[in-house]
């Protein structure tokens, strides 16, 4: 990457594709303007535009036997459940948490701080080194870190919504969950998995130990 490229990378960290843009924090000073470009959302982007099909996918199996040589990792493989919750509510909750959690930007750093440093101390102080370093570190380590961040975010978000967390074996977990590192799964794959997670979250109460947030 040349200097120009590095500079562009530094300056476009927060440029978000239109398709990924959504409604944002309310802007009380400009209610009229809010209803403009940011509402042009690509299909599948809104948290509430997914319709639950009449025929539901199969309910995932949750029973498993822990193997001594392959112990369960509850930080990686888990599912959520909350009592007295409808499928619609569980799906809305899961989709909101998924939207907050996906698109992690591990090493991009703080563009605001970078802009401040550049304004005060010149471009070299804030931009170029940071942009190259961030891009390289992200390509090398970002994927695993993103997967972990996604799970941490889901745990906290669903925890604040009052859901309990339960452990699962990796084999059972893979049937109705997905891992995303540097890329993103196709929307229909994600929608199906999130629907099955919602079926579990609103289904029968698990008999295994509650793990907490």
């Amino acid at each position: 990457m040349g200097w120009g490229g590095a500079l562009c990378a530094g300056l476009t960290i927060f440029a978000v594709p239109m398709g990924a843009q959504g409604q944002t924090a309310p802007a009380p000073a400009a209610p009229v303007v809010v209803a403009q470009p940011q509402l042009r959302i690509a299909p599948g982007a809104a948290a509430n535009d997914f319709v639950i099909p009449e025929t539901l996918p199969p309910m995932p199996a949750l029973d498993f036997v822990e193997k001594p040589d392959y112990p369960v990792d509850p930080d990686k493989y888990f599912y959520f459940h909350r009592d007295a919750t409808t499928l619609e509510d569980a799906l809305a909750d899961i989709r909101e948490c998924d939207a907050l959690s996906s698109g992690a930007n591990v090493y991009a750093g703080n563009s605001a701080a970078m802009a401040g440093a550049m304004a005060q101390y010149g471009v070299l102080a804030g931009g170029i080194g940071g942009a190259i370093g961030s891009a390289m570190a992200d390509a090398i380590f970002g994927s695993a870190r993103r997967r972990k961040e996604y799970k941490v975010n889901m745990r906290n978000c669903m925890g604040w919504k009052g859901y309990q967390r339960y452990a699962l074996s990796a084999e059972r977990w893979e049937v109705f969950n997905f891992e995303e590192g540097l890329g993103r799964k196709k929307e229909d794959v994600r929608n199906l998995a999130l629907l099955q997670q919602a079926m579990v979250a609103s289904g029968p109460k698990p008999k295994t130990k509650e793990l907490g947030q």
Binding site: V16, P17, G19, A20, Q21, G22, Q23, T24, A25, P26, I41, A42, P43, G44, A45, A46, A47, N48, E96, D98, A99, L100, S102, G103, N105, G183, R184, K185, K186, E187, D188
Partner: peptide, 12 residues
């Protein structure tokens, strides 16, 4: 609160 949207680029 607004409808929360992902910042990831969607893939169809």
């Amino acid at each position: 609160s607004p409808t929360i949207m992902t910042r990831a680029k969607l893939k169809h």
